[in-house]
Each structure stands twice: as structure tokens, then as C-alpha cells.
Write a protein that binds this DNA or RNA. Structure first.
Lengths: 144, 144
DNA sequence: CGAATCTTTATTATTATGATAAAGATGGTT
DNA sequence: AACCATCTTTATCATAATAATAAAGATTCG
């Protein structure tokens, strides 16, 4: 799995928002960027995409910011990654100008099967589960 | 699944070699390139990678060319695609300069899980199975 | 020897990714 | 009303990855 920096940034930004989920005040971009060391201007674009996908909501104006649109256990890794990179889009053949050869058509079917497996794996993991794993990981590092 | 043009070319080139598997003479690059409409110089590099991966063998000199290194039912899509793009390589974080944050470490583990699913899906389909699907597809187009 | 072919490496063109910048719109606060 | 912090939108640039081209060298058959 080759994940883009953008999608990874999106995941950690969502983690930051998940940590703030109980709070009524939204988190400003600047705060998220500093907490997670994400280039602020890049994060601007990332949050816009997450918003377009309906994963976060924004509050404009002074004391504005971002919040999760719904509970962390109702948001999956697939949601986040597809919002940024759209790995769920129908695979296109890199070749195939115009009509598909039979061989390429069959290959496309295979890429679809593989992609479906990937999507299922990403859907199995929610943002809440991600938070849980990180906490466990943290706890472990103190057991030693 | 976002597959590179190079990997797709590799698959159709392997199909051409599979069709020639029973023959004792190897297929020259030029013949494969023309049959499958692959840029010949590009195919040069592709076959080199397939050879390095041990999927094909080459015969040099006049009347030389390429042949599958083993039976089509002993070659999987994973073999071919990994020879070209190496999708089996350990996922690296696009972020993470130096030591990983806890969050990024956990994310890496998830990318690994997802990648493992992808690999399993690609390993399930052999070159022989691909040939079979294309023939079926062909047969279907005449049943109408 | 010479033609056909693989081998190896270098270069270029195009596209995707990662990042930066800034002007405009909005809304709370004074 | 003015101001400031913030989101919004669009444009631009730099770097890296991908796709493709090119060509000189090595090998073997006839």
C-alpha cells in the first residue's frame, strides 16, 4: 500500500479532531497544523477535501475552526483516504486509448477485484479503533 | 487499485509469452511489442525487470528472444506486478523524517494490513487463470 | 564477418505530488 | 462600525515519479 503524504496528513488531522470531539469549540487549522506538524497551507487544502466529503464541518469567522461531522466510530479509514486520494474510483487502464482490448478489459476486472479487497480492509478500521490502537501502543511503551 | 502503465504492459507481454509457452523458440522483443502495441524501447526495460525477477529467461544473439521461466500456472499476478512496481515492499510513511510518532507508527501497521490483503488477492490469480478468463471473454462475445 | 538480438545506461518529456501564497468572505468582539 | 481571526478559493511553484526514447555495447547464429 502506497499512501500519499496528503492522505497520511489527513489521518493524523482527523485524529486531532477526534481528540477534540467532545468539546463544543471547533479546532482552528493553525492549532491542528502545529499539534501534528503539518504544513499549514497544505492542511488548508486537506481539510477542504475532508469537508467536501462530509467528514468534518467548519465554523467560519473568529473563533471558528473544524470539527468531526460525526462520531469517530462512524468514520472509517476508507472514508478518510477516499476523500483525499479516491482509491475507490473505478480503475482506469493506463493503456487503452479508445476501446479496450480483450486482455486489458480482463485486467481491469482484476484490478477491480483487488481494489475491492483493499476497500474492505480500509472499511474495517474506524477512526475510533485507530485512537484505541494508539492508546494501546502508548500504554505498552510504559509497561517495559 | 492504481496500476502503472508499465505493470499493465508487463502483464500483456507475459500473456504473449504464455501463448508461446509450448514453442521451443523464444519470442523477440520486437514481436511482442508489435503484437501488443507496446513501445519497443519501453518493453526492453520491462522485460529486463521481469528477467531480474526470474519470471522470464532470455536467449541472446540472432534468433534470440524471451520465454517464460516456468509454467503460466506457476506465475501469479503478484509475481508480475511486484517485479515491476514492487508493491510488496514494506510501506514507508510519507511523513516521518527520523523517528516515527506513535500515530504514524500505528498507521504504518494499517497500511501493512491493507497491503497484505492486496497481495493475497494478486496471488490468487495466476497467469494461466488470466489466459482462461480472456478466452472465456472471447467465447462469450461470439455467443451473442 | 555481419545481421539480429539481448544488455546496459543515459537522457528527455510528461504528469502527479507536495507545498506555498495570497486575496476574498465571514462572523465574533470591541 | 471597525477590526481581527478565521475559513474559502484559486493560483502558482518545486520536486519527484512515471513514461518513453535513444543509443552504444555484447552475444550468437548463419
Amino acid at each position: 500500500m502506497r499512501i500519499s503524504a496528503k492522505a497520511e496528513y489527513a489521518c493524523v488531522a482527523m485524529l486531532e479532531l477526534a481528540a477534540n470531539f467532545a468539546e463544543p469549540q471547533p479546532l482552528p487549522i493553525k492549532v491542528i497544523a502545529e499539534a501534528q506538524e503539518i504544513p499549514q497551507n497544505f492542511l488548508v487544502q486537506i481539510l477542504l477535501q475532508l469537508k467536501t466529503a462530509g467528514l468534518v464541518v467548519s465554523v467560519r469567522g473568529a473563533s471558528g475552526g473544524y470539527q468531526l461531522a460525526r462520531s469517530p466510530d462512524a468514520i472509517t479509514m476508507a472514508d478518510i483516504i477516499n476523500a483525499i486520494d479516491d482509491r475507490a474510483a473505478a480503475p482506469r487502464s493506463a493503456l487503452a486509448k479508445g476501446r479496450l482490448s480483450r486482455a486489458v478489459g480482463v485486467l481491469l476486472g482484476i484490478w477491480q477485484e483487488v481494489q475491492a479487497e483493499e476497500q474492505r480492509a480500509l472499511q474495517r478500521i474506524t477512526l475510533a479503533e485507530l485512537v484505541r490502537r494508539i492508546q494501546e501502543d502508548h500504554a505498552l511503551s510504559y509497561q517495559i
